[in-house]
């Protein structure tokens, strides 16, 4: 039997303890006493400055880390500047899933088209990232984790494909997976911007 009053008065704890001991009471009664007493340890903890400290920590962490999360790879930025300087003839390609033929190694022309499409995706992603970044920060925590995890997985795929393509540039299969990953990232960022999942 739980005696709520005994939680409030230490003397009552002692009396109950004394009684239980004198009665040679059952293990269950003694367990109940210990559990009741343990519950009384759930006192209000006060740490008025703790959140301020945590917030400081997180902001510092954010400044050093969160920026890199959405920052395009250095090589990409250099490539983007390079394209802007010399690429006056480069036309903006429409966003649509590119059709890669079934041949396993791409011809020169097809490869150029695919690379151009990849660049269009990358440019669109860079723009979308700027819009998505503040939105993701305001999301409900679990949803934010989810999107960050998803984007991290896609980024990893893109990075792996990029690494593989540097050694096997004309392989149609890898190009297809690279485009799929870029498209997935673009759609995910669009979803974040539109805030509709």
């Amino acid at each position: 039997m739980k005696d709520k009053n005994s939680r409030k008065h230490p003397e009552a704890w002692a009396d109950r303890f004394k009684q239980l001991r004198a009665d040679n009471s059952s293990e269950i009664a003694r367990d109940e006493f210990i559990l009741d007493l343990a519950k009384s340890l759930q006192e209000k903890e006060k740490a008025p400055l703790l959140w301020a400290k945590i917030e400081n920590n997180l902001r510092e962490e954010k400044q050093s880390k969160a920026v890199t999360f959405f920052r395009p790879h250095l090589l990409l930025r250099v490539a983007a500047v390079f394209i802007l300087v010399i690429g006056t003839g480069v036309l903006w390609q429409k966003f649509s899933a590119p059709q890669i033929s079934n041949s396993r190694i791409l011809s020169k022309n097809t490869l150029q088209k695919v690379i151009s499409t990849e660049k269009s995706y990358e440019a669109a992603i860079a723009e979308l990232e700027k819009l998505a970044s503040p939105k993701i920060e305001k999301m409900e925590l679990e949803l934010m984790f989810l999107y960050r995890d998803k984007l991290a997985i896609i980024d990893e795929q893109i990075e792996q494909c990029r690494e593989e393509l540097s050694e096997n540039p004309g392989n149609a299969h890898i190009r297809r997976y690279m485009l799929a990953a870029l498209q997935d990232k673009k759609e995910t960022l669009q979803e974040i911007v539109q805030n509709a999942i």
Binding site: A79, I86, G87, G89, V90, K108, L111, I115, K119, G170
Partner: peptide, 11 residues
């Protein structure tokens, strides 16, 4: 220029 920007010459 366009090739050096990332395309590859497969002959």
């Amino acid at each position: 220029a366009t090739e050096a920007a990332g395309s590859h010459k497969i002959i």
